[in-house]
């Protein structure tokens, strides 16, 4: 169980990364915290010809607070963000979800953006990005662009990122005066979610985002609903997510959790 052979490029600047990606495209992979990619390499699931290590690029290691958003660079580790003093105040939903990402020993190396790039539909950070309506900042040698969360995840482990693009960072909106709730059901502590739900109060009602069920984390906005109208909406949403069976859970069980936890969380944020 050893990785296949590849070249290793230790980038010092973003320019190094963009040049490498421009030159090698899909044959190159960006190596950040490595917590997903390295396991895939060890299993020989992935066979890049070149790994571009971005973790020595200082400018990617920044967490920047603007008036209405937090911009998190590609080199920011999950532990860095957890330790960021403003986290609970600026990004309360992330503060709830981030401790569920893996374990302390993986959060210490794994990056926020790496988790998004990996686009595991059960992962917490993609869910948080979708729930908050954040943006992904993509950059290639040719251009820079911002992609909204809902457009970024294209499918199971697939994203809107082109082969020559680096996820330079993400921007998460700071939403004042809202309430947030997050709950995840996994087989064990630290496992990928069977179902993860994030609820936020919106000006017109509520948003529920669900991970672990569809191929991509999926959010739905509703006006204030109560009683059977809420039940009906959750039931329809649960079915629309297209849950499937695997060794850890059945589709029915996942739909049950969406209905029940969705209802609980919506109750919490609207309370």
């Amino acid at each position: 169980m050893k990785p296949p052979a590849f070249d290793y490029l230790r980038a010092e600047t973003v320019g190094d990364v963009l040049d490498g990606l421009a030159q090698h495209g899909g044959d190159a992979r960006v190596l950040a915290g490595g917590q997903s990619l390295m396991a895939m390499l060890n299993m020989r699931l992935a066979k890049p010809k070149l790994l571009i290590d971005i973790m020595r690029i200082r400018e990617l290691r920044k967490i920047e607070r603007t008036a209405d958003a937090v911009v998190i660079g590609a080199g920011v580790r999950q532990a860095d963000l957890l330790a960021w003093p403003d986290l609970a105040e600026a990004l309360p939903l992330v503060a709830l979800a981030l401790p569920c990402v893996g374990h302390m020993q993986t959060r210490s190396r794994g990056t926020i953006c790496g988790s998004l790039a990996h686009a595991d539909p059960s992962a917490e950070m993609p869910l948080a990005l979708v729930a908050l309506g954040g943006e992904v900042l993509l950059r290639s040698a040719r251009r820079r662009r911002r992609v909204a969360a809902k457009d970024f995840f294209a499918g199971m482990m697939l994203t809107a990122r082109s082969d020559d693009e680096l996820i330079e960072g993400i921007s998460l909106p700071v939403i004042n005066g809202s309430n947030f709730a997050f709950r995840e059901v996994a087989r064990r502590h630290g496992d990928f979610a069977i179902v993860a739900c994030a609820a936020t109060k919106t000006p017109s009602g509520v948003r529920l985002a669900v991970g672990g069920v569809a191929d991509v984390p999926t959010a739905r906005d509703w006006p204030r609903l109560e009683g059977s109208a809420l039940d009906d909406a959750l039931n329809a949403f649960a079915y629309e997510l297209g849950a499937r069976d695997d060794v850890h859970a059945t589709a029915r069980y996942r739909r049950d959790l969406v209905r029940m936890i969705g209802r609980d969380l919506i109750g919490e944020v609207l309370r």
């Binding site: 190596l31 490595g34 917590q35 302390m104």
Partner: peptide
């Protein structure tokens, strides 16, 4: 594959799964 934790070491003050890290890094 980064699950069992037996290979955990500390690199520059960070807990690190040494099986998910390249020597080159």
């Amino acid at each position: 594959h980064g699950v069992c934790g037996a290979c955990t070491v500390v690199v520059d003050g960070m807990l690190t799964r040494s099986c998910l890290t390249l020597a080159a890094q």
